[in-house]
Design a protein around this nucleic acid. Structure first.
Lengths: 169, 169
DNA sequence: GTTCCCATGTAACGGGTTACATGATTGA
DNA sequence: TCAATCATGTAACCCGTTACATGGGAAC
């Protein structure tokens, strides 16, 4: 049920149309909470019906600009502060590790080395992203940087673990 | 589409009934790939129809013991070695971080410290698990330990990151 | 005038969760 | 005999993905 909060969170910063939101999902939230166009438009409709958003303005080409309401802000705050986030679940990488006993040691070793290389590549991609984004003083820049640092630490840890695991075999 | 591979992977070790599989999902895979009872029974039916499993034996109370076929093993091997695992997606913890600008600095700081404490608690729970499991020489023990080490490193990294992030604010 | 970008929506499908429904066997 | 455990299955619902469908406005 977090897509609604992602939408509320983005609109809390400033009003936007569904189209605008999609771009922001793609540019800043894609690694954290991806969403498709049909999902976003659907959710905007539901949130407006529920009174957490309003259509603040209508523009050309049927553009509807949504703005968060007081109830919307209250719901966002409630979610952020008073509810616990879901712990991580479902890792395809780890699921495979459980079954490495069903292939040869050589294949298992290769899998883990490959996984290390993939983590390195992702780590580098995040560093490139860090270098290419124009970081400002806005909300998204400040907190987006914290999230990116998490990604850097995560990918580094994954690569180290995979190399360690490969040595264990 | 990984539930089918989880089922194949468990049955590759030894034949089992749906009921047996559920217990194994709960005891060893719960942190990596949780599954519900209705999912497991449904998947067993589909896999048997597709010829990746067979009903090897029937027991009391309508018990059906499933065994993996050669095609099943081939599919498991193909998935494990020749396909790429999905990279991590959707972190509710990080989604919230993006929106910490919409609450006070004090609340943002508290959230991150709380997150650090939650990571510590999960880390300790994993250590307890490590101490309580009877580790043998079987496939699941060897590779399960690698997965558990990942969890330990992950939770440690999360706690460190959250404390670092709290200091940034 | 044609191509890009802006802009919104619907439909079909698949996977996951929860709840419902049923019943046999074992052991205290 | 009663409770716990073994054992299988179905139905409804929600969420996410992919594909389809449509059209206005701006710039060249």
């Amino acid at each position: 049920m977090s897509l609604r909060h992602a939408v509320l969170g983005l609109l809390a910063e400033r009003p936007a149309s569904g189209y605008d939101l999609m771009k922001r999902f793609e540019s800043s939230l894609s690694n954290v909470w991806p969403a498709t166009q049909s999902q976003v438009y659907g959710e905007l409709g539901k949130l407006a019906t529920a009174g957490l958003l309003t259509v603040a303005a209508e523009g050309p080409r049927g553009r509807k600009e949504y703005a968060i309401t007081e109830e919307g802000r209250a719901e966002l705050h409630h979610w952020l502060i008073e509810t616990e986030p879901e712990r991580f679940r479902r890792s395809e990488v780890l699921l495979r590790v459980f079954f490495l006993g069903s292939v040869s040691r050589f294949e298992a070793h290769t899998y883990l080395e490959l996984e290390a290389a993939r983590s390195d590549r992702f780590h580098e991609a995040l560093k490139d992203l860090e270098g290419s984004v124009e970081w400002g003083d806005d909300q998204m820049s400040v907190y987006g940087r914290l999230a990116l640092e998490y990604g850097l630490r995560q990918t580094a840890m994954q690569a180290e673990w995979a190399r360690w695991a490969a040595r264990q075999i």
